[in-house]
């Protein structure tokens, strides 16, 4: 499995990767600091899953999802969005735009695990 982790915080990217490692998954990761870099990397890396922050400079997580919809080969890539903003309106908007899950920060290992399993289920 290939996972692209997108967050302007290096700490947060490391946290997500380490949490995934603790799940015992066999995966390869790439990291990006913003949505724009994520698209460039995704075109080469073809991730099975993108886990992205919402609030980022250059290009937000929501813009990233919107752009992915227009890119052949990436338009169906599952996306999990993380954000410190705890707002029902914003989380609903993110899910309507195509994200499969919205996780509030602080992200617990259990919340991340649940979201990944809800997408891949028994294929993990």
């Amino acid at each position: 499995m290939q996972i692209l982790v997108v967050d302007d915080s290096q700490m947060m990217r490391h946290y997500v990767v380490r949490t995934l490692q603790m799940m015992g998954l066999d995966f390869e990761t790439r990291e990006a600091e913003n949505g724009r870099d994520a698209i460039t990397i995704a075109k080469m890396f073809h991730p099975d899953l993108i886990i992205t922050d919402l609030n980022m400079p250059e290009m937000s997580g929501q813009e990233l999802i919107s752009k992915l919809h227009g890119i052949p080969g990436l338009m169906n890539t599952p996306v999990i969005v993380m954000s410190a903003v705890r707002s029902q309106g914003i989380s609903e908007g993110v899910l309507r735009s195509g994200a499969l899950a919205y996780i509030e920060k602080p992200v617990s290992p259990e919340a991340l695990r649940r979201s990944v399993i809800s997408i891949f289920g028994d294929t993990l």
């Binding site: 700490m11 609030n55 705890r86 914003i90 920060k105 602080p106």
Partner: peptide, 29 residues
């Protein structure tokens, strides 16, 4: 700096959610 920046971001979201759980808000970097 990156650690504090992320902590600040998350702490702000958590504090606002505890203070005004029904409010719709966004905040800066």
């Amino acid at each position: 700096d990156g650690t504090i920046r992320e902590f600040t971001n998350i702490a702000c979201g958590a504090a606002l959610a505890k203070w005004m759980p029904k409010a719709e808000f966004q905040f800066g970097i």
